[in-house]
Design a binder for these strands. Structure first.
Lengths: 119, 119
DNA sequence: ACTACACATCGACATCTGTCAATGTGTAGG
DNA sequence: CCTACACATTGACAGATGTCGATGTGTAGT
């Protein structure tokens, strides 16, 4: 596993092309966009992403995120992994702590794809 | 069942407030936004929505949509129902045919929520 | 080394989801 | 009425998903 350095994350395949409403989405592109939306389509992950995004330096420690939910630590870890694998969250380890940060471009592109705002 | 006349569709609960990145999403709001994204988070439904949106008059007959996929008619009907229930698609019956049309505002608001463009 | 801590992974489980074949419902023509 | 057609609903089933407890991994302090 080389992580997102060499492999193209789903989010990177969205940063192009016209919005949903402009022309029929090809089957291939739909298959690549869907996982991104699937990653977002969960209340906990939505809140996690929002929490990280609206944090002070645009990043948040897992320990903080854990405390914000009535869920087990493995569950939070799982959700963060999903958001990370899809390319919506960056992962940085500093000492014992792990920090997640949003990729603003990812959200912007996805929003444009759905909302129809010119990319 | 009174349909979307009296009950508030998920999509209508999104048309407000600040984007994900502005401030932490409340648990309640996350619970209401997630179903919308869940409805979108499927390759077939993405293509259906895109097909309808980019159709001539902004609406498309189910018969046309059926032909665009290698899926059974009930399956397409199911996906259209999901998109309709969540408020992304309007449903109109004319004679024997049923036409679906996108709600532009719904997509715009959802895109703004994700993309961070001011609502 | 040992312990404590932060986080990830694993295995198991109940629930949700996409799909189909079969059937139902309503509309229009003969 | 009876048939044909467009679409919806139902029931069933395999596969995906969210959750947890238990365990693994790596880092830092004593």
């Amino acid at each position: 596993m080389v992580d997102s350095q060499l492999t193209l994350t789903p989010v990177e395949t969205v940063a192009c092309c016209s919005p949903l409403t402009a022309e029929p989405l090809s089957a291939e592109r739909a298959e690549r966009v869907a996982p991104l939306l699937k990653a977002l389509a969960d209340p906990v992950r939505l809140r996690l992403l929002s929490l990280v995004a609206s944090h002070a330096d645009g990043e948040a420690c897992v320990c903080d995120l854990n405390d914000a939910f009535d869920l087990s630590q493995p569950t939070i870890s799982h959700h963060l992994k999903v958001l990370h694998e899809v390319g919506l969250l960056e992962r940085t380890k500093r000492g014992v702590w792990v920090y997640y940060a949003v990729r603003p471009a990812a959200l912007r592109d996805l929003g444009a794809l759905i909302g129809g705002v010119a990319a």
